[in-house]
Design a protein around this nucleic acid. Structure first.
Lengths: 162, 162
DNA sequence: CAGAATAGTTGCGTTTGTCCACTAAAAGTA
DNA sequence: TACTTTTAGTGGACAAACGCAACTATTCTG
């Protein structure tokens, strides 16, 4: 007669996720957690840890000199107040500069600094490597597919299409 | 000679996302934001707003009577301390109960309450509907594919395979 | 029995984001 | 021109949530 093993009544590997098992939202949200942690680890001490916000802002300002905060805000799906703080922070770190827009007194234009440009180069490498490492197990073909689908969802959600 | 239009130097629709354009991480992280907001809206006042954590916990406790906090923690990718607080909160709301595990003095077993079970029923409906609404634009076939791929990534990340 | 590992708790600090109200400027309207 | 509405950005207050690290109590290993 086999001895009854100890251990939890429901070992992790065997637990069913109820309806979440088939829910895209659940997986996106869970993977997001792991993804963000992994990315943060790799950005250790780089003035740009935590959140998609800083990275995206840095890269956008670098590749679009004079871009406006409100435009970035929409792309990273944050409200203007959050965006403002983000900009403040990056200016403190001397990654970007802010100046009034010449043709619109309400708006600002953001520009990259030397330090920001240097960081942007590093961050590009890290971000792309991180993503490909993280999804390394996913077959090439599936990755492409995933990218296409998610890009579409993102663009629609951010209001970039139509 | 055409008059020079006002407006931002880089209108949102035309801004390229630099290397992020092809980075899975970026899309996952961005979509996650929209997804979470949408879900929170739909959970308005339901004792279970904010975070994948509460929903998953509720459903798991409901479908696995006696499940342990540490098992759930691993599935939702949180540390034990975060999980503990989550449990406290749900007990305060009288959604679940906690008791010592009979066979292991260190462990606990969680059980659903009537109120919790009722809520679980509602939440199942909301969560599945939310996900399918949100991804309604994605063709059925792509959704299946997405689900398969993401499920695999999740299971690997959460350490459920092997 | 001694040492290592596991489950859970608690305190601490940090960060992050959201809501709301407010200013200034520009655009629309008549 | 005068009036209204919309847009860009700022600042404060507030509320969570999360992770780390330290600590207790069990249990497992050898």
């Amino acid at each position: 007669m086999p001895v009854k093993k100890k251990g939890p009544p429901y070992p992790v590997e065997t637990v069913g996720l109820d309806v979440l098992e088939d829910t895209l939202s659940f997986y996106i949200r869970s993977i997001n957690i792991a993804l963000s942690r992994d990315l943060d680890d790799r950005l250790e001490g780089l003035d740009v840890a935590r959140g998609t916000g800083k990275i995206t802002t840095l890269l956008l300002v670098d590749s679009h000199p004079g871009i406006r905060p409100s435009v970035i805000a929409q792309l990273i799906m944050r409200d203007r107040s959050a965006m403002g703080r983000l900009v403040d922070q990056m200016i403190d770190h001397e990654l970007i500069t802010r100046q009034a827009a010449p043709d619109d007194g309400r708006a600002q234009e953001l520009h990259i600094t030397q330090k920001g440009a240097d960081l942007a180069r590093k961050v590009r490498k890290i971000a792309t490597k991180q993503s490909s490492d993280f999804f390394a197990d996913v077959p090439e073909k599936d990755q492409k597919r995933l990218l296409d689908i998610l890009r579409r969802v993102y663009r629609r959600t951010a209001g970039l299409d139509q």
